[in-house]
């Protein structure tokens, strides 16, 4: 499969700080690829390295097979949707969208019709004469998208583009972005700190922590088979069990991860191969579709347990904080992790 973007041992240091540390990634053409991590983990710096706003301190970046070192942003076949949208306040929406075509010398009639088409694609037909200041956040976000896409880039970079939108709008834009990417077949490189967003939209996700990549995988594998304690706790919630308790429960001294929703409260059947634990029920949180329990095992380990409220009837068993409870989970639900520092 041809590669859209290839990082080989790329580092970017700012003084003493290693913003990006020995990162290697292969992003395939037409892929929806997310860079996921907490703020300061190096994901945005990676995006800026692809755009050309930063140069790597060492290592090599290839875009469609061509070495990117020394190529300025305006000569790269990539476009960016900025976190703050970066719309030009002195131009109307149409001129904003047509800007990339204008600076490349496209005739006025053509660039205006292409800009109109791009606006129609993001459902903003007829908004061309407005100024960015007259638009809502969601509309500005679409203009920024149209402004990037009108240039028909081979790679589209998106820097937390949905971060400023409210939840409903964000979910709607997630679907639209994903559909757009499928239609156009453009490679999307999407930076986000929101794991739900990354999981629901991406073909593959690279999880960043302190300038390094912890794991690159499909959303399903990332969630079901996290490689490190960091990934286990950053992508979704997880119970990471270490040390003697880990050895007692799983038979291996390596830490393991068990998802809260894979644990059942109560006693396992006598002949089951389930792992069985006992502890004190500390806290119960009703969360609507699920109820979350906090169980403190006798070793001191806290265990988060999530039970789906999948019956329309009241909870069959009334739990009370302070009572002793049993909990169990299947052997296969545990995922062994590399023994690295947690998040």
């Amino acid at each position: 499969m041809p590669l859209a973007v290839q990082f080989t041992q790329v580092s970017r240091t700012f003084g003493e700080v290693k913003a990006v540390d020995q990162v290697s990634i292969d992003i395939a053409e037409g892929e929806f690829f997310s860079l996921l991590g907490p703020s300061g983990s190096g994901k945005t710096t990676c995006l800026r390295l692809i755009a050309g706003f930063e140069q790597p301190s060492s290592g090599s970046i290839r875009i469609h097979g061509l070495e990117a070192a020394g190529v300025p942003p305006y000569q790269r076949d990539v476009n960016t949707v900025f976190q703050d949208y970066a719309l030009f306040p002195h131009m109307n929406v149409l001129d904003n969208v047509a800007y990339g075509l204008k600076v490349k010398g496209t005739p006025k009639a053509e660039r205006h019709s292409r800009a109109e088409n791009a606006l129609a694609m993001v459902a903003l037909a007829g908004y061309g004469a407005r100024k960015p200041a007259q638009l809502s956040g969601g509309q500005r976000q679409r203009v920024a998208l149209a402004r990037a896409l009108v240039n028909r880039p081979r790679v589209l970079l998106l820097d937390e583009p949905l971060g400023a939108l409210d939840l409903k709008l964000r979910e709607q834009m997630q679907v639209e972005l994903k559909n757009l990417q499928r239609q156009l077949g453009i490679t999307f490189v999407f930076v986000t700190h929101d794991q739900t967003e990354a999981l629901s939209m991406s073909d593959r996700v690279a999880v960043f922590n302190r300038g390094r990549i912890e794991q690159v995988d499909t959303p399903r594998n990332l969630y079901l088979n996290p490689a490190t304690p960091f990934v286990a706790s950053f992508v979704g919630t997880s119970n990471v069990v270490r040390g003697a308790l880990a050895e007692a429960l799983s038979g291996s001294p390596a830490p393991f991860s068990i998802r809260p929703e894979h644990i059942r409260l109560g006693a396992a059947g006598p002949d089951s191969r389930h792992v069985q634990v006992e502890g004190l029920l500390r806290d119960i949180q009703y969360q609507g579709s699920a109820t979350r329990f906090e169980v403190q095992l006798d070793s001191g380990q806290l265990l988060a347990v999530s039970q789906a409220n999948d019956s329309w009837q009241a909870m069959p068993q009334a739990w009370q904080p302070g009572q002793r409870v049993q909990a169990h989970w299947p052997q296969e639900a545990m995922t062994q992790l590399q023994d690295t520092e947690a998040y």
Binding site: V78, F82, R147
Partner: peptide
């Protein structure tokens, strides 16, 4: 003038002089 506007201009293919004439100077 937000730096991201100048970066956006370069990102969209404007050479430094074009960015100056189209974005920096008007603003």
């Amino acid at each position: 003038l937000p730096p991201s506007l100048l970066q956006a201009s370069a990102d969209l293919g404007a050479k430094p002089l074009q960015t100056f004439m189209q974005v920096t100077l008007p603003l």
